[in-house]
Design a protein around this nucleic acid. Structure first.
Lengths: 350, 350
DNA sequence: CTGAAAGCGCTTACAG
DNA sequence: CTGAAAGCGCTTACAG
């Protein structure tokens, strides 16, 4: 079946292309009868608009909004998703797509709320954001839903929200991968410390899932038989960390590996170096600058990445495919864990 | 500076758009003088053709050719690059690009030659192929160069050929990453066996580079102090492998890890299982089905992947950008090593 | 050697 | 409520 054009539909329906266009874009001002007829013909022939032609002619740009924590000197974590978003935007620019990036100060809820309001003012045709603050994100999501604006979660998701898609990692999977690595590196009777290190408890859910995956791996088929000691340090203050670690390591001198369930693993690396502890393997998440530093020094053995660039890139693509192309999309796009060592990182940077 | 169109150039040069088009496409039939003038104006204003418009209007498709070993049941290695090529093609279809895939029987040079002749008959505007057979590939490359057809190498490259671009991995890097992993998993005084396992010697260069990277890592800062024993088995016959390994392992009973520099690592996994050897770590290349099987069984600890999908994908994109967009391109696009474990593979498949 | 015109498939005013 | 026409930036015959 050859491709059908607006013109063909118009001919078959005995109307002009203008009328067909009005129906296809729901611009109203069309008799119910002709509308039905046109829609039928379009459907019967599986009409697909020619995007090239549309892009060439259309004046109005489709605008999406993204809302991310601003990448700062100290915390470059959000730079990669941003790069991904920008590059996807670049690719889709020819299709008249534009993405406006909004930023909020990390750890500042009121700023987050302020920026969501700005976005609502803009009335974009789609929104991309990581639901870092649960309640505030929920409210934002509700407002978007009311306005009929689809939104994509990245990095984490809130199940109860009516999100269009989620692009991110699976915490449980990440935990299992970490376990797999540590299991390879420690002796069968070594003990392992699992550390939930987080200032706020916002992302505690994610950390818990990683812990679960980690522990489950050993239940399933880890060869290591040592104790798995789980500990929480609700602070990133170096002094507090020092105290807690001093205490646990002195009472368990067989701990030979530490699994940090989040990206603050560099804090532990600092501790190990300061105290000249060299026989403990260390593994954590995210190749942010602080972590890379200790990866290169050998204090961190592995980092598990979550393809942050891809998260940004695919968020835009997904939204585009839904809004502009009306394609069916994958609701949960789970990206695999990326295992990073000192050596592999050398080329992984790019 | 606003975007300049053909029409603008025509006005400035005091000619019609048809003439400008003729110059821009080198279709001749234009006075030298007007030609120079038009080219100057285009350059001065950094004219960039609107590809959307071109795609909408152009009748002729641009055709590329790819030449890969046909993916077979037993050897699915070449499926991923093929998928990458096909998906890139899909994305670029709207720009009137087409890629014709040619396949040859692996290990059949005459078939390779036959297919290169078919490609030369087709006269495509670009070619993508892995130069598996050195001499035959060189000849093909020479012919392509004579015809002015640009070609992209993937998987491996021949330095002396005048290739447009190479998309693939860096053997030395891969070797270092493997060393990094093994260094983490073995005790400081364990010995390590480095195994070059290859039926033909075509890709021996690649294997040697991996060996070099592996050994250099330990020279630089590996903590392992054991012997590094290098061995070559110029066969994939299970009997021969059995013999050679029996001999080396019996004379070196402190070998605790084997690094296979190629994708035939599953052969060694079979050996270890058959002989019930459980205390030797095993690492090799490429997540092909046979290897994945033993990865899942735990006989192989790590596989190092080379983003075969990306290799295919980027080859097409690169060629497209050069031929259609006239962009500057990266001559050697080196993809990072991808570290794969049993756990990480679960989600990595995609 | 050069120009005028039609056309790609769609969108956008505008006239009725 | 509907149609006719112009236009997006380029390519493609065709006429001269």
């Amino acid at each position: 079946m050859a491709k059908i054009r607006i013109k063909d539909i118009a001919e078959q329906a005995g109307v002009s292309v203008g009328t067909v266009d009005r129906v296809l874009h729901n611009r109203g001002e069309v008799a119910e009868e002709t509308k039905t007829k046109i829609l039928e013909i379009a459907k019967a022939n599986n009409y697909q608009p020619n995007l090239i032609a549309r892009a060439l002619t259309s004046k109005k740009r489709c605008v999406f909004a993204s809302l991310l924590p601003s990448p700062t000197e100290e915390d470059v974590f959000w730079q990669s998703p941003l790069d991904g978003i920008n590059n996807a935007t670049l690719e889709l620019e020819q299709f008249q797509l534009k993405v406006e990036n909004f930023f909020f100060e990390h750890y500042d809820k009121s700023d987050f709320i302020k920026k969501t309001e700005k976005i609502l003012e803009l009335q974009p045709e789609g929104v991309i954001f990581p639901p870092i603050y649960k309640n505030e994100s929920k409210e934002f999501a509700t407002k978007l839903e009311k306005l009929g604006i689809p939104f994509v979660f990245l990095e984490s998701k809130i199940e109860t929200c009516n999100y269009l898609a989620y692009v991110g990692s699976d915490g449980y999977h990440g935990g299992r991968v970490a376990a797999n690595l540590i299991d390879f590196g420690v002796a069968d009777n070594d003990d392992i410390l699992v550390l939930n290190l987080a200032k706020d408890l916002e992302n505690i859910h994610h950390l818990k899932q990683r812990t679960q995956g980690f522990l489950d791996y050993f239940m399933d088929y880890g060869k290591n038989q040592g104790s798995k000691i789980t500990m929480e340090i609700p602070s990133t203050n170096s002094m507090e960390i020092q105290e807690k670690l001093d205490s646990i390591l002195s009472s368990n001198n067989n701990i030979k590996a530490i699994f940090v369930t989040g990206s603050k693993v560099y804090k532990i690396a600092q501790y190990l170096i300061k105290n000249q502890i060299k026989n403990i393997s260390l593994i954590g998440f995210d190749p942010i600058d602080q972590n890379i530093k200790y990866l290169n020094q050998g204090a961190i053995n592995f980092l598990i990445g979550q393809h942050p660039y891809q998260q940004g890139f695919k968020s835009v693509k997904t939204l585009f495919e839904h809004v502009l192309l009306n394609h069916d999309i994958v609701k949960d796009e789970i990206l695999p864990a990326d295992i990073i060592t000192k050596e592999s990182y050398q080329l992984n940077k790019a």
